[in-house]
């Protein structure tokens, strides 16, 4: 019932910061025939190479993948995780880095419909993959029922684990592991919530799974 905080409530950066670009060292993505192509992801401005007297760039590969319905053709450093690709290069920081080691679940996304830890997924391996992140879950202005349930049940506090919880919950519901509260607890245990919202996370998943 209450009013919602919008992104505009976030204090803007100081005056001179211009257009958003976490992509300074990535070539700008440009739409080409419906696809989005980025070139020269890793090579960076020549000035930098000169400054550091650097030799060749680290091994990189070309990969095309779909993220939230949008195709990207990119060149990525082979070491780049899907999580870092999303957060640092594709301007999709909704997926969170909590441990970067598969031990917390904050980075959970769907890859080809399955919930996985994006921190342990090398982006270079995702040729042809379909990735869904929390940013791609809502249908326009209409929230996914689980997103709505998280708000109604107050299934989060700080909100940092929330995208991972929600993506994991979507997976959990798709897999059908929602037969009881105990089953949900077990199958949602790959997502740590340090604020301790588990009781309400279970309720939100239950509510969504059973269409309550």
């Amino acid at each position: 019932m209450s009013t919602e905080l919008t992104e505009s409530a976030v204090p803007p950066p100081t005056e001179h910061s211009a257009a958003p670009s976490r992509r300074t060292f990535i070539a700008t993505t440009t739409a080409v025939g419906g696809a989005v192509v980025a070139g020269g992801l890793m090579t960076g401005p020549a000035a930098l190479a000169a400054e550091t007297g650097a030799a060749e760039a680290p091994p990189s590969s070309r990969v095309s993948l779909t993220v939230n319905g949008k195709r990207h053709a990119l060149t990525v450093d082979n070491r780049t995780s899907l999580l870092d690709l999303l957060r640092e290069h594709l301007d999709l920081p909704g997926s969170k880095k909590g441990c970067n080691a598969g031990a917390c679940g904050a980075c959970t996304v769907l890859v080809d419909g399955r919930r996985v830890n994006s921190c342990l997924t090398l982006a270079v391996r995702l040729e042809g993959a379909e990735v869904t992140t929390v940013e791609g879950l809502a249908d326009g202005d209409g929230l996914h029922p689980l997103q709505q349930a998280f708000i109604e049940q107050d299934a989060f506090q700080c909100g940092y684990c929330t995208p991972g919880q929600i993506m994991s919950g979507v997976g959990c519901i798709q897999e059908g592991h929602t037969g009881s509260a105990d089953e949900i607890r077990e199958w949602m245990s790959g997502n740590i919530c340090r604020c301790g919202c588990y009781v309400k996370i279970v309720r939100a998943v239950e509510q969504t799974a059973h269409g309550k």
Partner: peptide
């Protein structure tokens, strides 16, 4: 073992 996510990988 592990978590549902890790078992999917």
């Amino acid at each position: 073992s592990a978590s549902a996510q890790l078992r999917n990988m």
